[in-house]
Amino acid sequence: MPSTLIEKYIRESHLPHIWCAGCGNGTIMRDVIQAIDNLGLDKKDVVIVSGIGCSARAAGYMNFNSIHTTHGRAIAFATGIKMAKPHMKVIVLTGDGDAAAIGGNHLIHAARRNIDLTVVVFNNSIYGMTGGQFSPTTPTGEFATTAPYGSIDPNFDIPELARAAGATYTARGTTYHVPQTIKLIENAIAHDGFSIVECVTTCPTYYGRKNKKGDAVKMLEYQRDNSVSVAKAKTMTAEELKGKIVFGELYVDNEKPEYTKEYEKIIEIAGGRSDE
């Protein structure tokens, strides 16, 4: 029997999806849907915003108010939606290139404002849609079509970048740790402020093949064997943590004021009447 989630939330007429066999993006899309269902959100008030790339195609498969925007700008579109309708839950689905390269400026400024958006980053460490170029999260030394001799670019830690910029909820999940990742996304959506969950996903077609990581199963096993929980990571040295995926809730701040709520105060000071 198919999952009831499919009937409730998936545009079945637009399947099959375009993702390659072994791609983890479908897993993350399901995690997001499960998190929305667990929270019992009214679909009417949920907007799914995506940018450009493999990750971005998830928006079209999800039966919500969905908008597939331009490369890198999903968070900026989402900011406009949230400002116009602060009661809406605005969820951004983006990739490592979309969020941290071309869209890096929007990521840090939305984090700085602490505007109530939830950003789910599908991090496959590569540009998949264009055929395997290195991204800001490709580990230094690894290979890509535009790094045929190995990448000399240092890589970003996206949740750390967002935290430094002012995000008030940061977390990391993987496509191996499904129940944990669902909970992280759930907490992120429920959080009143800018939240980001990086989901480490598998791209056997490009990242895997270029770097001899094996098939999808091997790549998932790699996630399992190289992930450490936040609690365990605290007991480990920097040397021991090298190359490890630290997953779980990385940073939570419930004190910093949320941007659209602050703007409601501006409307009050100016003597206007908010329709929210």
Binding site: I67, G72, A76, T79, G80, N105, H109, I266, G272, D275
Partner: peptide, 26 residues
């Protein structure tokens, strides 16, 4: 804000245009 509307100064011009479209779809 005097008429219950909302203003935002974005981080750049690209973001401003994107936010305008985002608000308009609502």
């Amino acid at each position: 804000p005097e008429v219950g509307g909302r203003f935002i100064q974005m981080e750049d011009e690209l973001a401003s245009m994107a936010a305008v479209i985002g608000a308009s779809v609502t």
